[in-house]
């Protein structure tokens, strides 16, 4: 029996993949403060359900820095907008350009958080399963490269500690330091290529590429997947359709203006779609509490 994980991650990989694709599209499509804020909020909660926000906390500083830069820079560069708040030197700073900066920071943050959740849900074996049918080599290369990252980092540390032990790593000038770093890289490349090619020979011996690629993990599309797919297709489809008719947009320039009032059918469908993984995860969470209290 294959462990398919729990909650949202236990769905068929194609469903998860298209869900994330739709989230990314929505993040770029709906430039509306409430839409983006709720999307950001949902992805943060989703991240907390997936790994208690571990990977989110690790990168939060970097992401918030980028968002802050965007918020500060936009009103400085852009003089569009009708409402002038104050003058910086002789440059007008407008309310609209400030709002636009905030909107764009929200878009960036949502995209980055969606990617974090994506990395947690679409694990390398799922990635290989998804893409090995039409791009077997490319998918395989990316999967193997993913595995090489921690391996090579480990080797890099090992080489550096050996170099230090024999008196290396004491370059003074920048040029000397760069040279020493490249020495380390030279060792890494000869070592890793040799061992990688040993692996390739063993792959050849076991018949890699001799037929259609088979997957070690078999995912089947069951009834629950079908149910979830219909739910996601209806809510997501309506949200997308509404997007093309101007719902969920918010005009910033020349002056702030929303085309529709906030609480309309479109916003509700959008909310249902983006909070879908939270439904699934919290259902499992409640279910778990429920059986535990019985025992």
């Amino acid at each position: 029996m294959i462990n398919r994980g729990s909650g949202f991650s236990s769905l068929h990989p194609w469903l998860c993949f298209f869900y994330f694709l739709a989230l990314l599209l929505f993040a770029m499509l709906f430039k509306h403060p409430f839409y983006l804020a709720s999307l950001l909020f949902c992805t943060i909660i989703f991240n907390f359900f997936l790994d208690r926000g571990e990977s989110l906390k690790k990168k939060a500083k970097f992401y918030l820095l980028i968002a802050a830069i965007v918020i500060v820079l936009n009103p400085l560069f852009s003089q569009r907008g009708a409402t002038i708040l104050f003058y910086l030197g002789h440059r007008p700073v407008t309310l609209e350009s400030m709002i636009y900066g905030v909107l764009f920071a929200l878009i960036l943050l949502s995209i980055m958080f969606v990617f974090l959740a994506y990395n947690l849900v679409i694990s390398p074996d799922r990635f290989l399963y998804l893409f090995s049918s039409f791009a077997p080599r490319t998918a395989f290369i990316i999967t193997v490269t993913l595995r090489f990252i921690p391996l090579l980092q480990h080797r890099l540390r090992e080489i550096i500690s050996v170099q230090k032990a024999i008196g290396g790593g004491e370059g003074e000038s920048k040029k000397q330091k760069a040279k020493e770093a490249m020495e380390v890289l030279n060792i890494l490349v000869t070592w890793s290529l040799e061992s990688a090619l040993q692996k390739a020979i063993s792959m050849r011996a076991r018949g890699y590429g001799s037929g259609k690629r088979s997957s070690a993990v078999a995912f089947s599309f069951d009834k629950r997947d079908l149910f979830c797919m219909s739910f996601m297709a209806v809510t997501g489809g309506l949200a997308l359709l509404g997007g093309f008719f101007g719902y969920g947009t918010f005009t910033v320039y020349p002056s702030l203006e929303a085309k529709y009032p906030l609480f309309n059918w479109h916003f509700i469908f959008f909310l249902l779609f983006i909070s879908f993984p939270i439904f699934m995860e919290s259902r499992e969470w409640i279910w778990w509490r429920f059986i535990r209290s019985k025992i």
């Binding site: 080599r137 395989f140 290369i141 193997v144 490269t145 890289l185 990688a196």
Partner: peptide, 26 residues
């Protein structure tokens, strides 16, 4: 990527590309 898929490539080349990409990334 499609162009790359069409080329005849040995398993050695596939693993070596991954190793080089890994080195470049690290």
């Amino acid at each position: 990527f499609v162009r790359f898929e069409k080329k005849h490539i040995t398993p050695e080349a596939v693993v070596m590309i991954a190793a080089l990409a890994g080195i470049a990334a690290v």
